[in-house]
Amino acid sequence: MAHALDPDSMDPDLPARTLLELDLHHPAGPAAVIAAGAVDTPTHLTWQVSGMGIEARTAAWGSAREAAQLARAQQQAGAPRPCVVSWLGHPGPRWWRTLDGGVARRGATRLADHLESWFRHAETAGSGPTVHTAVEAHSYGTLVAAHALVSLARADPARRVDALVLSGAVGLPRALAQELDRQGLHTGRVYEASAPADVLAALGRILAGRVPWRGATALPVTAGDGLAGVRGHDTSRWRPEEGPDAGPRGYRDPGTVTLAAMARATVGPPQASA
């Protein structure tokens, strides 16, 4: 954990990381919430939810780096003061448990609680423009996010994020997909990246009997405009020491068309300076 927060442990151009929560007594294992960027006065706040096998005990540094890379890309996309929260609020399950929706529902309860706390804080934090709020989720984390957003939409008062960005999505149980439709959460604010050779996402959906997300705007995954394409299921596959032409790359790797598109989707339309 200390390595994830150390200013010297990553590219010095990446935003600083701040530990917001550490729970060493979580029933399923240690849990953490790490912010990258303007944690005190954000203009944009994005919750980054990871999937299979990602947990605070073993993946804090990599998850914090991915959050910082998205925050930097959001700055490049026009966000004045972005903050990306790496949400490690529940241990990501091993592959055989991704076929079970129970883990996702339990994680979603905790994620919804954190999001609700954020919305309440934003409402009482004083004057200023509304903070643009988004969720960026990968793999089994897309299922956790879906359950959490349905829970928030059913609450009183109802809560909605401004954008939901998916990558490597493992599909939805039919009942959950129908509920997303009823709550109006399927279209208009949902974006999805699906990389070539992402076999794990397809297998997770098919073996669990889930249906694809419907109505999401497709994000680019093929190289273009001087940016690399992505391939496979991983979020991170590239290291700077490998050189700019090395490949393949994952959904959240820097220098990819997909990370740049995720940044634009989570930032939303240009806003006045704040």
Rank of each mutant, 00 (worst) to 15 (best):
V39C: 02
A201I: 10
A263P: 10
G128F: 06
A197R: 15
T235S: 15
P82I: 08
P212D: 12
T256E: 10
T133W: 02
L149P: 03
A216N: 01
A195F: 08
A28G: 11
Q178F: 02
S236E: 05
H3P: 00
H3R: 14
T41L: 12
Y191D: 04
R110W: 02
V257F: 09
G188T: 05
L22P: 02
G107W: 01
R72C: 01
P27T: 09
L227G: 11
D181K: 09
L227C: 09
T266Q: 07
Q76A: 14
W238S: 08
H138T: 01
E242S: 07
L227Y: 08
W96G: 00
G53I: 02
I34M: 01
L70Q: 11
G229D: 04
R239P: 00
W213L: 06
M1W: 12
G102W: 06
P270W: 10
H25A: 13
A265H: 13
R97I: 00
Q75N: 02
A155K: 09
A175F: 03
L149A: 04
A71W: 06
M52W: 14
P93T: 11
R174I: 02
V170N: 03
L152E: 02
V165W: 14
R239Y: 12
A263M: 12
R214D: 14
L5F: 11
L259D: 09
V150P: 04
A223Q: 09
V257P: 10
D13G: 09
V221P: 10
R231M: 07
V33A: 13
Q183A: 07
R210E: 07
A177K: 12
T130R: 15
D100T: 03
L14G: 07
G107Q: 03
E55I: 01
E242I: 00
A175N: 09
A265K: 07
T235N: 15
R81L: 10
P270G: 07
L111N: 05
T258R: 08
G101S: 14
T258S: 15
D100G: 03
Q183G: 01
A153H: 08
G247Q: 05
L14V: 05
S151I: 00
H25Q: 15
P254S: 06
P240I: 01
P15I: 05
R214I: 04
A148S: 14
H90E: 07
L203Q: 12
R65V: 09
A153S: 15
G51V: 09
T46P: 03
E55A: 13
D225P: 03
D234M: 07
G37D: 07
W47K: 00
R17K: 08
T266Y: 07
A208V: 04
T217F: 01
W96N: 00
P7M: 02
D162P: 06
V103D: 15
A274V: 09
S151E: 11
A169M: 11
A4S: 15
V170F: 08
G107Y: 00
L143V: 05
R159Y: 07
E55P: 00
D253N: 10
Q75M: 06
L172M: 11
A158F: 03
A16C: 01
R189H: 15
R57F: 04
P240E: 11
L176C: 06
A197C: 08
G37Y: 11
V199F: 15
D225I: 01
A67R: 10
H114Y: 02
A64F: 01
D181A: 12
V135F: 08
L143R: 13
G243W: 14
D11K: 14
W118R: 12
A38Q: 13
H147M: 00
T222V: 11
P269G: 06
W238N: 05
T235F: 04
